[in-house]
Design a protein around this nucleic acid. Structure first.
Length: 137
RNA sequence: AGAGUCGGCCCGGCAGUCGCUCCGGCGUCAGCUGCGCCAUUCUCUCGAGUGUGGCGCGGCGCGGUGGGGAGGAAAGUCCGGGCUCCGCAGGGCAGGGCGCCAGGUAAUUCCUGGGGGGCGUGAGCCUACGGAAAGUGCAACAGAAAGUAUACCGCCAGACCGCCUGCGGGAGGUCGGGUAAGGGUGAAAAGGUGCGGUAAGAGCGCACCGCGCAGCUGGUAACAGUCUGCGGCGAUGGUAAACCCCGUCCGGAGCAAGACCAAAUAGGAAUCCAUUGGCGUGGCCCGCGCCGGAUUCGGGUAGGUUGCUAGAGGUGUGCGGUGACGCACAUCCCAGAUGAAUGGCUGUCCACGACAGAACCCGGCUUACAGGCCGGCUCUGACU
RNA sequence: UGGGGUGUAGCCAAGCGGUAAGGCAGCGGGUUUUGAUCCCGUCAUGCGAAGGUUCGAAUCCUUCCACCCCAG
């Protein structure tokens, strides 16, 4: 089952990678205890970054747990998110959910991101075709 | 059996499946890259540069495979070290820590053993426990008086004043005295109990207890004593987590320390000479560095590599020691990430799983915490 | 991860061994026809929490808790 691997090429590794998404994130999915920012990266694979602040999630054990669940969920869903860079930001009280509930929340957010990504791509294609049409006419 | 106390150990187990990270070894048809050799193209200053191809070796990546992968507190950062840089970490001042004694240790404010004091029937537990006769200070309010102690009420005899009288004296007032037994205040008022003593009282005297000083004995010492002698004890009140004194220890920063490779960008950097002045450096001074002159060419931001885990290491046995611990031998290698791994899901078993996540490494302390296992000892009850 | 700092009423704060100033806000009353101004009074069960030293602690000591700042 090699297609579900989650190596270093599927993660955001540099501060510049993170900064690029914070500066321009056309795809957003918000939840009461969670925020996902994303943008197309022009690659054939998705990449994930995690920002779990100590200010919001106090205990290191809880921060680790949230990161594990987020990565696991991303790993399962990676084929629906191809070509997208995503950052997950934790908000306050995200550690109040158990593992099953967290997985459910993440699955929901990934679906919303992939839907928006498809729509975004369509609109861009439409814009391009419109441009071409207008130029033709 | 119940209650208690001290010490040691464990931190869900098993199976399946999908992942992460490090290490070893294997493969690599195709991918990226370094080095060497060979062949060859072009250039010319004719033995160098450049391009292409082949072979070999290596690295990255990829694919199998084997193995390792959080804690007793990984936490708080309260102490102590190692390590690294600041020239050496040296002298003085300032500042700070510690504080019964002896030992252990790399070191400590830690640990072990001992002493004093307190708690408990006991096993045991707790203990910032040097000095107040070096000096300075503090004690609000209350109280007569709060440190060279003190006379408010009271008690006592005396002198004087007038009053009553059964002429013995009695009650009252004033005056200057005696007194620390009694009352009252306070957190605290300066030995206790008893007998004697006295005008009333008082270590004023005596007995016992307590206290102080000196000696002797025991102990390395702290200290102890049915020991001896001396002192009536207003000697020497409390407070040093008040200043302080005495003894003892401490240079400063911290792996984001530091070292190396290096796009970009800027014009400086290194060595030697000079040491008056200016600037800088750990809190300050001594000290040290820079600014000046001469000579020589490299410098180091993004990013990467390293530091980075074999250590005051674990386990076992023997020996020394009351013990902390030390010595010897054998044996084992047991996380090393870096946008940051050590996990998800399913099934199953049970005592239904607490507190909680390594970030340079150790030794302690403190705080959080569901439960389980083992051993020593004490008390109470029953039976033999 | 390392280094440093701060907690006193709803807010801003002084005090740093002897019964917690002051200002703003709030509440009650007075002045005024009413309001503003002004005047008077009131508001901390105890100084982030728990122990300890002391006769006495916001203050001194110890251990915790919360918040903030600095360094890639």
């Amino acid at each position: 089952m090699t297609q579900f691997a989650f190596g270093k090429c599927l993660r955001l590794l540099k501060p510049s990678d993170f900064q690029a998404i914070f500066n321009n994130a056309p795809l957003r999915a918000s939840h009461k205890h969670l925020l996902v920012l994303a943008r197309p990266n022009g690659l054939d694979r998705p990449r994930l970054g995690l920002v779990i602040a100590k200010k919001h999630i106090r205990l290191a054990v809880q921060r680790n747990r949230i990161k594990r669940i987020a990565r696991e969920s991303f790993r399962i869903q990676q084929h629906k998110l191809a070509g997208i860079d995503a950052i997950v930001l934790a908000r306050r009280e995200l550690d109040h959910f158990d593992n099953a509930k967290l997985q459910q929340i993440f699955r929901q957010q990934w679906r919303r991101i992939s839907d928006k990504a498809n729509k975004h791509q369509q609109t861009r294609q439409q814009e391009q075709t419109q441009c071409q049409n207008s130029r033709l006419s």
